[in-house]
């Protein structure tokens, strides 16, 4: 950018590209951009770079590590003034995960989110009586595809896995256990 009113020697597009190289600390095959937790990048005229990130889960212990990694990556590219902002609304959903991110997860042995996230509020309005579909036991479980053999003949072993964002499944065909990135 050679504009006379900007002191910044970098553009938001470059920052996005640099952030695309920052790996998620717990799932190193996917970048924080592919994961959908970088919401916005702004570069001000006086070269302050603002990055807006959103947590996947409110208790996600990786958020501090991610914030540190973002700062470190931008520093390495010569960005001096960095402002990190945490944004809660709209809440992160697995729909924000990129297609390449989902493919990388599968290659890593983690089944990516199996369905588009349904708008909970819409369901509640249309659910019969006062029944809230989000908590109903009659809502069918998602069909999860085994990342090893591709079979959808799989079953849930545990609602929680090694991190809050995952559940444990096992394949009934190849008998391998695997992590499933929960739909939220």
């Amino acid at each position: 950018m050679d504009s006379i009113d900007s002191l910044a020697s970098f553009t938001p597009a470059q920052v996005w590209q640099w952030l695309g190289e920052v790996a998620d600390p717990e799932i190193p095959v996917i970048s924080i951009v592919d994961l959908g937790i970088v919401r916005d990048v702004q570069v001000s005229a006086d070269a302050v770079c603002t990055v807006v990130i959103t947590p996947t889960y409110s208790g996600c212990p990786a958020m501090q590590v991610i914030a540190d990694a973002v700062t470190e990556a931008l520093r390495a590219h010569g960005v001096q003034q960095i402002e990190l902002r945490n944004q809660l609304s709209p809440a992160w959903t697995t729909d924000w995960m990129s297609a390449s991110g989902k493919a990388a997860l599968r290659g890593y042995g983690i089944a990516p989110p199996a369905q588009q996230v349904i708008d909970i509020s819409g369901l509640q309005r249309h659910a019969h009586g006062s029944a809230h579909a989000a908590i109903s036991r009659s809502v069918p479980a998602p069909q999860v595809e085994c990342p090893h053999c591709g079979s959808v003949h799989t079953t849930l072993t545990s609602q929680f896995g090694s991190t809050p964002c995952k559940a444990l499944y096992k394949c009934l065909d190849c008998h391998e256990p695997f992590d499933y990135f929960k739909c939220h």
């Binding site: 409110s58 208790g59 809660l88 609304s89 809440a91 908590i135 609602q159 929960k182 939220h184």
Partner: peptide
């Protein structure tokens, strides 16, 4: 409202499990 929106999906998941 923003904190509630963030928490709602977690809280629904907890309730499905405890139920």
């Amino acid at each position: 409202a923003a904190i509630a929106e963030k928490s709602l999906k977690e809280v629904s998941y907890h309730l499905r499990r405890s139920g």
